[in-house]
Design a protein around this nucleic acid. Sequence first.
DNA 1: GCTGTACGAGAG
DNA 2: TCTCGTACAGCG
Length: 739
Amino acid sequence: MLPSSPSAPIDSSQPHAAGTNVSVMVPAPMPTALTYQVAEGQNVVDGSIVKVPLGKRLVLGTVWGQSHDEVNPKRLKPIEAVVDAPPIREPLRQFIDWVADWTLSAPGMVARMVTRGEELMQRDPPVTAVRRAGDPPERMTPARQKVLDVITGADAYTKPGLADLAGVSTAVIDGLVKTGTLETLQVQREPGRIEPDPDFDPRTLTEGQADAVHALIAEGPKDGSLDVALLEGVTGSGKTEVYFEAIANTLRQGRQALILLPEIALTAALLDRFAERFGAMPGEWHSGITPKTRRQVWRGTAEGKIKVVIGARSALYLPFEDIGLIIIDEEHEAAYKQEEWVSYNARDMAIVRARFEKAQVILASATPSVESRINAKAGRYRHVPLPARYASRPLPSLAAIDLRRTPPERGMWLSPPLVEAVNDTLERGEQSLLFLNRRGYAPLTLCRTCGHRFECVMCSAWLVQHRFTQTLNCHHCGHVEPMPTVCPECGNANTLVPSGPGVERIAEEVATRFPDARTLVLSSDMMGGPKRLKAELEAVAGGEVDIVVGTQLVAKGHNFPGLTLVGVVDADVGFGQGDPRAVERTFQLLTQVTGRAGRAEKPGIGLIQTHMPDHPVLQALLAHDAERFYALEEAARQRAHLPPFVRFVAVIVSGTDAGAVKAHANHLKAIARSPETIDVLGPVDAPLAMLRGRHRQRLLVRGPRGRETQSFVKAWLAKSDRTRGDMRIDVDVDPQSFV
DNA sequence: GCTGTACGAGAG
DNA sequence: TCTCGTACAGCG
């Protein structure tokens, strides 16, 4: 059936009369909105999406309010048309203004993230339908009778839909149209949406889960002030069930909810779980969905018809009619940081949007980021721990293997104790996971004769050798070249040797050491798309594999009931110096990976190969002592004069000439008067050296508290004569500094 | 962001 | 002299 519903006006603000001037955000990197005139017969309100002339073309813009700018009347142009779409509501407009201000980007470009492309706003095109129009045909047949039996009243049906219901082919329906019994008409198809039902299939919660649910929905601030809760529960503690109850609560209040996930690969499983709990599919939003779904979800959220969306970080810019809850799952994930164009951490931006929308935020993680943990401990966020493991799954027993005492044999990477443990596991018919967060065969290739090291021509990172594809790959910029047979430096053949291990090399060692074991490599660069990955994960879960060699891809998702041993091939990779976040990431990753071992009745074993078994962070990991880890990290940041929330602000200067970047660095240093407050670290190579054919360099500016550093950079930009399109600001903010 | 235009280098 | 590629200003 095809109910047709008129589109109701959603924004209550008054229309601007014909002839008034309004500010319109246009998709161009301009500092302010432009002024246009409302034409006769146009229903223009604040937030209206409009088509306006800009230079030679027509663009989509958003009405920001009445304009008081003085514009040369000769230049002033009228609005071309008002788009048939719900206006962008005030809280979202305020959010756009805020993001533009904070990231020092043009507000029009931020607004573009909401109103990207006209097709987003369009309704589905009308479809041809049929309905009863006249008397039964003179020649009645059994098939025709079936069709007429199905039709009730004056309802309209699509042809294939009606044919399917009646169990006949569409030719029968065409016949009935010919006889005049049925008539065709054009109808607006409304996506047949079933609303999620908060009471569809409520789960029995453990005591710990019930407490957490109560804390989330009943203990928040009552005065409408910002409510951020950190839901911290180890893997398998049932975080999802807990935040589903918070969503149920939001639905009962008639408001909408958004779940953000760090990567698309995780959405499919969560969509299914959601449908089981709520009896309806939520909206799905990420780069991989079809244009049709995009359109439907955009409009559906704007009209309030879609109540829940599960999506990637860009879903944060959906025009929800009334969003009451934003959940950021795996809040510690670096994938929430967008590094291109308008740069932001979606987790922090979600908190800002929630403030404007008067919505609640739940940050969920088994291993929260250090800053969220500190905020929770300091009482700025509500800390909601979820202690008990679901189905009382015990924590794995962890131990370090000291590679200085029991090193692997020459040219090998698995030490005798780890090999023995894998053997034992194989004998018991259980599964082992060997984890190494390095794709490919070897992270470095060099020439034995002349010492030549293969580097990327684009960004001078080491090229990673891949044996499967016989290539040298740059994991920074994606550059790929065929594996050469002779050294390009000295011309000698057969002198190129791989240095260090990647997962492919570990797999090779596994094949020689355990020739009878069924082995699988799980690495993001060798999977044949999500389908193949899903099949492989199911094969592992089904016990068809004895040894898995994997990168961080194996850290989450899918439960492997037969997995009882996790071996970390090299824990030291992440404990090196340089990136202040490396230690944190390593702790989080190793906690997740080792947490995969074991099941309810059998605790798992985690063996961690390392050259520094006494490293305090490793010790905290082995003791399952997260408190100790967070204390260590906090202390480390203080020692480095990084307040807990210190952020890096990078000014990215794009241009043809690296000398100009140095000049900018010097300029910045000259005006940074108080080095304790603001530190210009100078130019560094951007990881993505080649973007759009232009060489990019990045200036790092380090400062405490986003605000001060921001205003410093802003002041510099204001003085700088190169403010036109050349600067991009990468902001890693402290959410507290704007709350 | 896009587009029209100005300008300098290289080809004929 | 013409063509092509890059730089740059302006858009209401």
